[in-house]
Computed example of a mutant assay.
Amino acid sequence: MKQKNANFYRQILQYIRTNPRNSILIVLLIIFGYFGINDLEDTSVQNNQTEISTPVAFDGSNYNVLPKEQKIPAEFVSARDGDTIVVSVNGHEINVRYLIIDTPEMNYDTGNPDPYAEEALEANLDYLTQADQIYLEFDVGPFTDNYNRALAYVYADDIFVNEALVADGLATVRYLNPPNVSKEPELRKAESQAQKKQINIWK
């Protein structure tokens, strides 16, 4: 850069010698060019020295570092029932409760699952195990419930699993706790369609 500046100024001085009437204008241009070029150089150096800040890594409990209303990659681990799963995020396993939906209970303590509970679990497993990538999406409200379960919308590739289970007639729209209700309209629509078709729990 310095060599290029030197050549530039030599050309300017040569021009002044041959065009003395324009010398004042040329001097002003030189002053402006000198400071302008140096300012650009300083800015370039500063930009190169600027460190890009990165968010704190998720450690399994500090949910506040995770973004809201964005898909977060996760690894499927297991499913307890149709609306509760375990996933791994950043290498940490967390329990996830599907937002705004409720599936029939498996009732592991009694060994008597509610009607369609097993079908809901099976459908949930099918969506999650057949996908190449699982995603969680947090709403605008609290990250977790009173049981410290992550409250999220779950995606299997491009399939919105919460909605798919409702559309399959294996889940109902329930447990709405504002402001975590952004997806309520589409879930209500899926529920209405399942009711009209009278499928599974709506028979």
Results as ranks from 00 to 15, higher is better:
I199G: 05
A6M: 08
L170W: 10
S44D: 11
G169N: 04
T129Y: 00
A123R: 12
A167L: 12
T110S: 13
N112A: 11
Y147F: 02
P115H: 06
M106D: 12
Y34I: 03
V77A: 11
K196V: 10
I134Y: 12
W202S: 09
R80M: 10
L40E: 05
A117W: 10
N38I: 01
D59H: 15
P115L: 03
Y98C: 04
S192L: 06
S88G: 03
L176W: 00
D39G: 10
F58T: 11
V77F: 12
E69Q: 13
D168Q: 15
F76E: 09
N95I: 00
L40Q: 03
Y147I: 05
T103I: 01
V27D: 01
G82S: 06
D114E: 15
A117S: 08
D139Q: 01
L25M: 10
E41I: 14
A120E: 05
L136C: 13
K4A: 14
A152S: 11
D81Q: 04
Y147P: 05
R149N: 08
A131R: 11
N48L: 04
K197M: 13
Y98N: 07
I94W: 02
D145N: 06
G82K: 04
V173M: 09
Y153V: 02
P179Y: 09
A123F: 01
P178G: 06
N180P: 13
Q195M: 13
D145F: 08
L121W: 06
V140N: 07
P113S: 06
D157F: 15
P104V: 04
R149M: 02
I26S: 01
T43Q: 02
K189N: 01
N107T: 01
T144R: 08
N146A: 12
V96N: 00
M1H: 13
G111F: 11
E191L: 07
N124T: 06
I85C: 14
I85N: 15
V65P: 15
G33I: 00
K4P: 00
P179Q: 08
S23L: 05
Q130V: 03
R174G: 04
L125V: 01
L99E: 05
A74Y: 15
L29N: 09
D114W: 11
P67R: 03
K196D: 01
R97H: 03
N19H: 15
N112W: 09
H92D: 05
A79E: 04
T50L: 12
N148D: 13
Q193A: 15
A167I: 07
G91A: 05
E186D: 05
Y108N: 08
Y155G: 10
V181K: 09
P104R: 05
T103E: 02
A194N: 07
A6R: 07
A131K: 09
N64M: 12
L13C: 15
Y98G: 03
